[in-house]
């Protein structure tokens, strides 16, 4: 009963926040977005003020009263300062890096200040990442990278960034919840398994003319270095002798071009298949062996390289997701 009430209130609050501080690529904090109230230490300070006031009137001591009023006014001034410390602070979404389910995805954001002003003592908490303290000096930008743990495959929309600041006196708390319009892809959690030969049998036959695909398993010979070849394969002994760069080449016996097929593991469920496909995509990429992907709704021709790898992983991450 209470749980449902709480959930309802929470949902309503989130909707209200969504209206008041909508998701944007770039958020500048202003009066709509900053909340402010004395923090726990501020309340303690108010208690001290009350005691001073009582002491002042009881001893009819105007000096004590004057100090009390000065400190009360100081609290008021510090509300303005704490507010000003957040106002004008700009959050910009910079980059999102994909990651595997069960691990973390990284987001990069850029903090910059209103012109000519510093923003100090900013306490940022994003999702489950540890709270950090940042100072943005006047005229500087601060690039921050957060790792947010993720558990489920698919598009990950990060929660709001909780920002607090007690600067300058620690008595007043100003806070805001910043929602940046960012998302990261969460790839399936890789699961190791045997890769059964795909039924097509076209791997070696379709090899490009002339050269055999470069593999790692069996030494094939030396070829002149082409930019992009892995440095680990450079034959330094030859270089020492001839002053020319050669790379060692290998071939893999049998399957040198592979299709990663959704139907390869009939015994596994959907997520299990995606996990195995992800594992083999990483593995084959590591072996520098071209691979293609065939899953319902997506087909990527065999290829190799970072872009291809990302495309394959993205296709796995978004399997079954609405476009």
């Amino acid at each position: 009963m209470f749980k449902r009430l709480r959930a309802a209130i929470d949902a309503r609050y989130q909707r209200w926040l969504e209206r008041r501080i909508p998701r944007q690529r770039q958020v500048t904090l202003d009066q709509r977005r900053i909340f402010i109230f004395p923090g726990p230490r501020g309340l303690l300070f108010v208690v001290v003020l009350l005691l001073l006031f009582i002491g002042g009137i009881n001893y009819a001591n105007n000096q004590v009263l004057l100090l009390c009023f000065l400190l009360a006014s100081l609290l008021n001034t510090s509300i303005l300062h704490t507010y000003r410390n957040l106002s004008g602070l700009r959050f910009e979404a910079a980059r999102a890096y994909g990651g595997f389910a069960g691990e973390a995805v990284d987001f990069e954001i850029v903090l910059s200040g209103a012109s000519g002003r510093a923003h100090r003592g900013l306490l940022l908490r994003w999702g489950d990442a540890a709270e950090i303290r940042v100072d943005v000096e006047a005229g500087r930008t601060q690039v921050l990278r957060f790792s947010l743990p993720v558990s489920r495959r698919g598009r990950f929309v990060p929660p709001r960034i909780a920002l607090r600041s007690f600067y300058p006196l620690g008595l007043v708390r100003a806070w805001s919840y910043v929602a940046l319009d960012m998302e990261a892809l969460v790839y399936p959690r890789p699961v190791a398994d045997e890769l059964p030969p795909s039924g097509d049998g076209d791997e070696t036959a379709q090899a490009p003319e002339g050269r055999r695909p470069r593999g790692i398993d069996e030494f094939d010979g030396l070829a002149r270095y082409v930019p992009g070849d892995a440095q680990t394969r450079i034959e330094w002994r030859v270089y020492a002798r001839t002053d020319e760069l050669y790379t060692k080449h290998f071939t893999e016996p049998g399957h040198s071009r592979r299709w990663l097929d959704f139907s390869a593991w009939p015994q596994a469920d959907t997520e299990g298949r995606l996990s195995r496909l992800a594992y083999w995509a990483i593995e084959l990429e590591r072996r520098e062996q071209p691979y293609g992907l065939r899953i319902p709704g997506a087909r990527l021709e065999p290829a190799q390289g970072d872009d291809h790898h990302q495309q394959v992983l993205a296709a796995l991450a978004l399997y079954g997701a609405p476009p």
Partner: peptide
């Protein structure tokens, strides 16, 4: 700076806040 900015309100409070009698 904080204190300098707090002086006007402090003076105002000092002048207008009613002087109550001692509580005990």
């Amino acid at each position: 700076m904080l204190f300098a900015q707090s002086v006007p309100l402090a003076i105002l409070l000092f002048v207008v806040m009613p002087r109550l009698g001692p509580l005990w």
